[in-house]
Write a protein that binds this DNA or RNA. Structure first.
Length: 448
RNA sequence: GACCCUGUCGUCUAGCCCGGUCAGGACAAGAGCUUUUCAAGCUCUCGGCACGGGUUCAAAUCCCGUCAGGGUCACCA
């Protein structure tokens, strides 16, 4: 039975790298028909906070990574104490003040490793029992460390709480984790933990160490390098499907040149052996591109439903009429949005109380007086009994033709007059979405 | 510094295990088409096997070395 776990510590928000670790664990569990376990490593009481726990859980749900079992290490302190006591009694650990340490080197007491593992080659060198610890990493192949690199490790801290490695080993063993999939930054923890497994008499699980996500400087992504919290991406208007899709492509590939791929399709294709060894630089550009693809292909009504709460937040007093009108606006901007928040930025001319005129656009397109044309166009448009993009365009082109102007001569000034900007979607679709009343009104007010 | 991990276009990657297809795709960049603007879309272009030795008829692929980058060295996780 495949059982994997993701073990975040609630001392900060869910990191984008952590999210990818969770994702690979989740995909592996699903691909193997196993269980995905979420374990909260809150042994550091001083740094752990409930707000962070809530945020992590929220982000996991948002990403769609549901867990089968949930544990908190703070509920299990008795367990860790019992195992520490056992090691003490067996002489494999010793006490230093209130802390409990695992015996490893010659000092203060000769190592137990040589005695309990007669099969391995022991070599007396600088005073300590020495051997090579190796494991077959599912991603990296064979990795080995010399025990002389490992010092006596603290198992239980002076305050009675377990250290990371001790709690981690006990939990992974007791929760019957079959494979530990975690970041590359844990490689050097692995031999230390294998030693603890042995001391406890547990069989170590398989290990798979994921490459790290790097920043532009090729260093591990950190808070100071920009956005690392999953919740930041959510707030900026990224879709969970896009974030998940992007993250899975960092260090893994379905192998068929497919870039846009759903979680369920990825699971079908997933193989831990196809995960890369080298760190991957995070590219916001590519994430944005993917997000834009998801938005373009999303059902308009669904997209409108995602945008509605954002609009209500920005314009608390606006009623937004019926859903159909919002859908029309969404339809108009869908093809050009990269994030959900782009929509808010571009549609203020529809939802805000007052039109904001971009100064540069005004100077470029409205500096010449076009009050005669605007007035006649407004009259013609207001007399339309069926006002829509098609009839507005016909009216517009007819007048422009009569005046011997080219369409462009009037299109740009009118766009600025209606939207406040020089750029935007097609003018007649914009008019349709703005509505007859406001279109006419803005045309009449522009030069008066 | 010690130990460990890694090295294919600027970036993410396919290919590597089982040597032989102009080293394929995507993002970004550049050009064009389309067009009432900006995007989008479509087409094209640019650009890479870190370096040096081997092995071999043949090396991105196998072996060795060098260099470069990263990670870890807590009573933090």
């Amino acid at each position: 039975m495949v059982r994997v776990r993701f073990a975040p510590s609630p001392t900060g928000y869910l990191h984008i790298g952590g999210a990818r670790t969770a994702l690979f664990n989740w995909m592996y569990a699903k691909a193997q028909g196993g269980k995905f376990i979420l374990r909260i490593e809150d042994t550091d009481k001083a740094r752990s906070r409930v707000e962070f726990l809530d945020e992590i859980l929220d982000s996991m749900k948002w990403l769609g990574l549901k867990w089968d079992e949930l544990y908190k290490q703070s509920d299990r302190f008795d367990l860790y104490r019992q195992y520490a006591q056992k090691l003490l009694e067996q002489g494999k650990a010793y006490q230093d003040g209130e802390a409990v340490l695992l015996k490893m080197s010659a000092n203060p007491a000769r190592g137990w490793i040589g005695e309990t593992s007669p099969s391995v080659k022991n070599k007396e060198s600088d005073g300590g029992p020495q051997r090579i610890i190796k494991w077959f990493d599912l991603i990296r192949g064979e990795v080995q460390f010399d025990t002389k690199e490992i010092k006596d490790q603290v198992l239980m801290k002076s305050d009675g709480s377990p250290t990371y490695s001790f709690a981690c080993v006990i939990d992974d063993a007791l929760m019957e984790i079959s494979c530990v999939i975690r970041g590359e930054d844990h490689i050097s923890n692995t031999p230390k933990q294998i030693v603890i497994y042995e001391a406890l008499g547990f069989k170590p699980p398989k290990f798979a160490h994921l490459p790290l996500i790097l920043d532009d400087e090729r260093a591990r992504m950190s808070k100071r390098a920009g956005a690392v919290a999953v919740s930041d991406y959510r707030r900026w208007g990224f879709l969970p499907e896009a974030v998940v899709n992007y993250l899975m492509l960092l260090g893994w590939s379905p192998g068929n040149n497919q870039e846009k791929i759903t979680l369920s399709a990825a699971v079908k294709n997933f193989s831990i052996k196809k995960i890369n060894k080298a760190g991957a630089v995070f590219s916001l550009d590519k994430l944005k591109w993917l997000n834009g693809q998801y938005i373009k292909e999303m059902d308009t009504a669904k997209l409108a439903a995602l945008i509605m709460p954002l609009l209500k937040e920005k314009y608390p007093l606006n009623g937004f009429g019926n859903g159909q009108r919002l859908e029309n606006v969404v339809q108009l901007f869908k093809g050009r949005m990269v994030t959900l928040t782009d929509f808010l930025e571009w549609t203020d001319f529809i939802f805000a109380d007052h039109l904001q005129l971009d100064e540069e656009a005004r100077q470029k397109h409205l500096s010449q007086d076009k009050s005669r044309e605007f007035g006649l166009l407004a009259d013609a448009l207001s007399s339309l009994s069926d006002f829509n993009a098609k009839t507005a365009e016909e009216t517009f082109r007819r007048l422009v033709g009569q005046w011997g102007m080219s369409a462009g001569d009037l299109v740009h000034p009118v766009r600025v007059a209606l939207t406040g900007r020089a750029v935007g979607p097609g003018l007649f679709d914009t008019m349709a979405v703005l509505g007859q009343h406001r279109t006419v009104e803005r045309l009449r007010k522009t030069f008066n």
